[in-house]
Nucleic acid binder design. Structure first.
Lengths: 122, 122
DNA sequence: GCTCTATATTGACATATCTCGAATCAGAGT
DNA sequence: ACTCTGATTCGAGATATGTCAATATAGAGC
């Protein structure tokens, strides 16, 4: 199992620089920028369907061919998978002919943390 | 005049038509479309800062003047608040001279549900 | 080497989004 | 009535994003 960039490669891992609960305190500009990258990655119906298809697939992973049936061209699917990977939401790995994707649960959890109620102030 | 609607007014309330956990099953096209509207609303750093400023403000509410200090013009702030309101994330109410915004916790909770691990399948 | 299949990248175009200044609306108080 | 202030809407320009067809890359197998 080698890696085809097991890790994302931009300034990704936005996770590490954001993610306190929204109601804990006003987000800093940097935190907001990092968090926005994550939410932007989920702000497209095709990407949500790809992510959901992978997350719900057997063993939590799927090759591109398993999830390509979303109504757009193959390059477009590839483009969206790349965006999800660059956001840190997906991890990819080549095994022989196929490339398998799976969800990075840490990133998903970080996003959930932002949305969590934290300590209600009222 | 459509009034400063306390309730959103598009086909909003996307909440009602989406939101199963991502890993439960592949999202339908309609569910993905509805959920994407929600995530798109959070996919901007200014909107995240506005939402966070409101959520963390005293009593969980704030007037525009309380949160306008995010580095963009006042019309731009208004535009972003409107987008958050149309997504169902904010509720607005005029009281005298000021208009107060507060977070709709149900919408936030629905988004959190999508991200939740649900039943891990592997 | 060659070919076949699976996936990624490039380049171009159309649409969506963010932003601003200017204008407008709404309520409070004189 | 007028004016002042808080907030929204309008119109336009710049940038970002989604999409495709064409091309390229990578591995398997002959």
């Amino acid at each position: 199992m080698r890696a085809l960039s097991t890790t994302p490669f931009v300034d990704e891992r936005a996770v590490e620089s954001c993610c306190p609960p929204l109601s804990e305190r006003p987000l800093s500009s940097e935190e907001a920028e990092a968090a926005a990258q994550l939410f932007k990655a989920l702000g497209d119906p095709i990407r949500l369907r790809l992510l959901s298809a992978i997350a719900s697939h057997k063993d939590g992973e799927a090759c591109v061919c398993d999830v390509s049936d979303v109504g757009v061209s193959q390059p477009t699917v590839s483009h969206h998978l790349r965006r999800l990977r660059e956001a840190g939401l997906l991890i990819s790995e080549r095994r022989g002919t196929w490339i398998y994707y799976r969800v990075d649960p840490a990133t998903l959890a970080a996003m959930g943390r932002i949305l969590s109620a934290a300590s209600a102030k009222a």
